[in-house]
Design a protein around this nucleic acid. Sequence first.
DNA 1: GCAAGAGTTTACGTTAACGTAAACGTAAAG
DNA 2: CTTTACGTTTACGTTAACGTAAACTCTTGC
Lengths: 138, 138
Amino acid sequence: MKTDASTPEPLNYSISELAREFDITTRTIRFYEDKGLLKPKRRGQTRVYSPEERVRLKLILRGKRLGFSLDESREIIDMYDPAHGNLEQLQRLLKHIAQKRTHLHQQLRDIESLMGELDEAEARAKAALVQSRVKGSP
Amino acid sequence: MKTDASTPEPLNYSISELAREFDITTRTIRFYEDKGLLKPKRRGQTRVYSPEERVRLKLILRGKRLGFSLDESREIIDMYDPAHGNLEQLQRLLKHIAQKRTHLHQQLRDIESLMGELDEAEARAKAALVQSRVKGSP
DNA sequence: GCAAGAGTTTACGTTAACGTAAACGTAAAG
DNA sequence: CTTTACGTTTACGTTAACGTAAACTCTTGC
């Protein structure tokens, strides 16, 4: 049994469809291609994006939200493919993965700190707001 | 009772001390000052950084780790001070805080996804590594 | 008294990540 | 046939966040 019958995968996307979906410009998408992050097929001279390419784009944008450079996003995306074969590269890949994990852990700590501080800031603001009402509306 | 006797606060820091501690250049620190993120005192013409300024610097660098621009970091730092008095600004501050929280939640989701994917990638790599050993060392 | 070391200002250079615009091709609609 | 919509390439412009270097000041140890 082939696990299908779930998503009817639109098979392909145009550049403007992707631009609309992710709220970016076509210029941006072409720029990513220039940088080697995307490699769409061509129908004539027009770019045609497969679902896989769409996923890559999503990964790039997620990377951006985490403050990654395009090069970093490329590295991460490269971790997905069947690991370039040889043994030495696999070792490096594992190291690389470990590094990224460390990075993410730091980000987690940073976010937790900031969240807590936002809580305090909000509390102070609300307190000040009450004061301001007392003095403001007699 | 004054809650003291804990940290012997070095009282002040030179620009190069801070640069060393946070592993950045003095140029970077001066740049942040140019952009209005730091306002050290002066002893003569030399910059003198208080513990408070040091904290601001830490906040800026944490912001960088989270992919924030200097302007965003400035906004966040501004949330800490006694909320500029008037009522309307307090409302906006609260909205602003809510926005940042939303942003952080998105980042949390992104990190969780990426973590999971790193796990999978690592598993695949390790599996491939085993295969490579079997074929590689007879 | 002077060389070394730390600090300062001023200014031009650089890189990443796009924006913006010109100039052109192509296919469907009226 | 020509307008409209979408696509393409090429190229110059822009902004953020520093790097790099020159030219100068101050203090401190020898």
